[in-house]
């Protein structure tokens, strides 16, 4: 599966990612957490092969990403980015078709695959809409559907020797309403169970992360601040990297935990620091 070992990425002398190690594990949803500018998106860009690490190596089933042509990479991993591009007036269906066109299957199978992906992303009703006319949340659902379709099409290429697909989600819930936020993460879990794939998701909502994610990687200033099972994530780590107070409460149904922020300084800091703050 996808493994990054001690990867760094520097641009113009600034280290955006600095010696981070992350292994994607099939069936375990990984939350990537951290404040703005911590290097979360850069890490996903590195994992997707879009950017090449300036230090360390990223491997997919033991092969260096740099050795894999984009065509082969596209069959194994998909990334849902933060800013879906909207140029020409492609319809949603046309845009998703682009991701599955080279799949070795009949046109009818391809249509079914597109319909399934749209359905899984709760975007079936957007099928005939035009990309530039979608709202932010609708664009994210369509981008998610496209990623699912891309990987489903890519799986048809495989001969069984390779590992499962990798789904990388960069703040996929940022523009979604609460119901769709839960729907998307549930869909990501369902997808993992069905395909045996691995998934990493950048989130800012700790409640969502605690409810749906198995593991967490906390980044700060491009470095790993903490990593481990999501259920063991200490509140002081969050307060330290986000420099704000977090309150953790048990979830009413026992699934994960509910996190709240109060806007106050971190609880662990003394009053002297708080007034400076």
């Amino acid at each position: 599966m996808l493994q990054a070992d001690q990867v760094s990425f520097a641009v113009a002398g600034r280290r955006l990612v600095d010696g981070v190690t992350v292994h994607l594990v099939p069936g375990r949803l990984l939350a990537i957490l951290g404040p703005n500018g911590a290097g979360k998106s850069t890490l996903l860009a590195l994992l997707s092969g879009e950017r090449r690490p300036t230090g360390g190596a990223i491997r997919l089933d033991g092969r260096d990403l740099r050795e894999l042509p984009p065509r082969l990479l596209a069959r194994r991993r998909a990334l849902v980015g933060q800013h879906p591009a909207a140029g020409f007036a492609f319809s949603v269906e046309e845009a998703i078709t682009l991701a599955v066109e080279t799949a070795p299957c009949s046109a009818a199978d391809r249509r079914r695959l597109i319909a399934d992906s749209l359905h899984a992303a709760d975007a079936a009703d957007l099928r005939d809409r035009l990309l530039p006319q979608l709202s932010g949340g609708e664009s994210q659902r369509v981008a998610f559907a496209r990623a699912l379709a891309q990987l489903a099409a890519g799986a048809l290429h495989r001969d069984g020797a390779d590992g499962g697909p990798c789904l990388l989600l960069d703040e996929p819930t940022a523009s979604l309403d609460p119901a769709h936020q839960h729907h998307l993460l549930r869909a990501a879990r369902t997808w993992m169970e069905r395909t045996g794939g691995a998934c990493a998701v950048v989130l800012h909502d700790m409640t969502l992360a605690a409810r749906y994610c198995d593991d967490a990687l906390v980044l700060a200033d491009g470095r790993e601040a903490w990593s481990g099972p999501m259920s063991a994530l200490p509140v002081p780590v969050l307060e330290r990297v986000f420099a704000t107070r977090f309150v953790r409460m048990p979830a009413p149904d026992g699934q994960g935990a509910v996190f709240a922020t109060t806007g106050q300084p971190p609880s662990g800091l003394d009053s002297q620091f708080a007034t400076d703050y």
Binding site: G49, E50, P70, L73, A74, R75, G81, F90, L98, T102
Partner: peptide, 20 residues
Amino acid sequence: ARRLDLYALGERDAFLLGLE
């Protein structure tokens, strides 16, 4: 034609969908 479609989505999306 097909690769132009991918490219028209944006360079990033084009790469992610398998184009150089």
